[in-house]
């Protein structure tokens, strides 16, 4: 028991590793603040395009979304980080993460928003257009607010996944939470810093998970 505590919950090591791990947390939060809006914007563009009635616009966008849904984000990241330099394009780890996430999470957000937009009855659009609102105004003021509301649980759930995915940054040396914890672990030969990272992830994401679980239960129950 004593050994276990020493190996996983060593107080001295925790104290020493704290500043390193907290610096990682800060980067994780900054990264999330960058990639979530980025992914949302990409997703919105995809959703509006995929909703278009023109098949030449629609099908390529659907294919684009499916492509990135099938592609593991880590593979995308490695491709950018290790593959692009062969084409003479060397991006930093952080830029690679940003691009990979924009592509990957954008596809997921896009799929969710499209479902939301399609859940709005066409009568809403007709009513808005009949009062003289333009197509853009109708989308902005009538369709999107209702669409977002309808798929809010899915949007939040995807956001949770995005924050968790930032841990992939550790593979391309972005000093986020997991990377920092692993650095501290390799210096101390002790698992305590990784346990600290896990606890921090749990503490910041648990409230969101709780909220989601409530929303999801309600959504599914409502369909029954």
């Amino acid at each position: 028991m004593e050994e276990m505590i020493q190996a996983f919950f060593n107080a001295d090591i925790a104290r020493a590793a704290m500043p390193i791990v907290l610096a990682g947390l800060l980067n994780t939060l900054l990264m999330s603040l960058l990639v979530v809006p980025l992914g949302l914007m990409g997703g919105l563009a995809l959703a509006l395009g995929a909703h278009s009635r023109h098949p030449l616009v629609r099908w390529p966008l659907m294919a684009w979304v499916d492509f990135f849904r099938a592609f593991p984000p880590l593979v995308l990241l490695v491709l950018l980080f290790a593959g692009l330099p062969f084409a003479g394009l060397e991006l930093g780890g952080f830029a690679c993460v940003a691009i990979a996430f924009f592509l990957n999470t954008g596809a997921y957000y896009g799929e969710i928003l499209r479902a939301g937009i399609e859940s709005i009855p066409h009568g809403q659009v007709e009513a808005a257009r009949s009062t003289g609102l333009s197509r853009l105004q109708t989308t902005t003021y009538i369709v999107l607010p209702q669409a977002v509301r309808n798929v809010l649980p899915d949007l939040l759930s995807n956001t949770l996944e995005v924050v968790k995915l930032t841990s992939l940054g550790s593979v391309v040396a972005v000093p986020e939470l997991l990377y920092q914890a692993r650095q501290a672990q390799s210096v101390t030969y002790n698992a305590t810093p990784i346990v600290m990272a896990a606890v921090i992830y749990f503490l910041i994401l648990w409230p969101l998970v709780r909220l989601l679980s409530r929303l999801e239960n309600r959504a599914l129950a409502g369909r029954g």
Partner: peptide
């Protein structure tokens, strides 16, 4: 809740 909050890579590591 625990396994929904933890990033899979953190669990693996």
């Amino acid at each position: 809740d625990l396994f929904r909050s933890l990033p899979p890579l953190v669990i693996i590591v």
